[in-house]
Amino acid sequence: MTVEQIEEKQSAPADSPGSGAGTRRQYAQEVLALARRWWIELLRERLNLVFSLAQPAIWLVFFGAGVERAIDTKVIGTDDYIGFMLAGIVTFTIVGNGVSGAMPLLWDKETGYLDRLMSMPIARSSVIVSRFVFQVAQQSAQILLVVLVALALGVRIATGPFGMLVILLTAALLTMSVTAAFSALAYAVPQHGTFFAVAGFVSLPLLFMSNAFVPLEAMPVWMEVVARLNPLTYAIEAMRTLVLNGWEPRVAASLAVLLFAGAICLALGTWQFRKQTGERVRG
């Protein structure tokens, strides 16, 4: 997005002082206007809203009340099964939302509204950035709700309120990566059928090939290797450590890996977006 802003500054007439500030204000206006669009849609799709808000909390209760009894606490290394599952369920939600969150971009592309947007004097990136901002905000609200439900179910977060903040931050980072990756897919596919086929194909393995349900230590070696290549693993590790253990160095290490994965996904997303709009004139 910085590149876009620089380009805009250069093309702005030289005799308009303060055009840089104006550009930044305009950029904010664009992102807000587009986010307003997402926001209205979310409110109108009430059923969708209720389900997506409640779903992770329901998972948590379900796991807490039922699955807990079938679990060998020696394998997961803690008595607090709900606390153990919390990170996994947060991640679960993020992946699910990543798929549904890329859909509006897909529709805009397919129905031609993207063209309408691209004919306007807006920075190219505001289309994607608005979606990211929106997704992260929506996701944070959802995760806050799950965490509150977990607290109500008796989970105690080892790192306290500040740790909770870091959990939200971790989730936001993962949301960025996942949203970027699925947006890249939305822009790359020839039509929506392909998107759903691929998204459906990758989501579940992505979750099962991570430490969402089983800690890395309890995995067979080959599975651990696969899980270590999966960015979800690091988000889960960071969040789980913050919930169960406290401030440990591996939290920082996991966040670093996540940041790196986020950068790659973002580059991928930008690349596909540019490719999609590549026939068009840049600006």
Binding site: R37, I40, E41, W107, Y113, R116
Partner: peptide, 8 residues
């Protein structure tokens, strides 16, 4: 083509 504008 008429532009598609979601639920607005």
């Amino acid at each position: 083509r008429v532009a598609y504008r979601g639920l607005l």
